[in-house]
Nucleic acid binder design. Structure first.
Lengths: 65, 65
DNA sequence: CAAAAATGTAATATATAGTTTACATAAAGT
DNA sequence: ACTTTATGTAAACTATATATTACATTTTTG
């Protein structure tokens, strides 16, 4: 299943590098988050959400089953 | 202003130590988060939220102004 | 197809989240 | 007042998020 950060980023027509730069983080960091390969800090999650006009729940809360 | 994790924890009648134990983390870690003295990882935020029957937004998303 | 742009990935380095141990203070209970 | 129980705090340690550099692969575009 595709990562929600990736979907939201593409909806905004941003590359990983552009999103990273807006947030002040490395392109690799965004890449790893989109591959669910690590556990970002809360501040980073908030920064991503704000930049993509989403909330924490939108991007990082698991769907109800 | 009082931290939302603290409020939710007290509503559930848990001590810092009890909450910490349920989550599998140290009492000090909970204490520091409640004092906004650090930047927890996403996984920890999710664990706290689930344990307190809240969502990420409930506990970690800033109030609309 | 060829060139450019975007993304994957890996090694090494650094900052900081989270642990452990320990003690001090505050709050609650008897 | 005394004794528990809960919370604050601090130093030293460990684990891991994130940076940096670099190159490989995939995707897009002319």
């Amino acid at each position: 299943m595709v990562n929600k950060v990736k979907i939201a980023r593409i909806e905004k027509d941003l590359t990983q590098a552009q999103l990273a730069q807006k947030i002040g983080v490395t392109r690799q960091t965004i890449g790893l988050i989109e591959k669910n390969e690590y556990n970002p800090s809360l501040q980073l999650c908030v920064a991503i959400a704000k930049t993509l006009d989403k909330t924490l729940n939108d991007l990082f809360w698991e769907d109800e089953k």
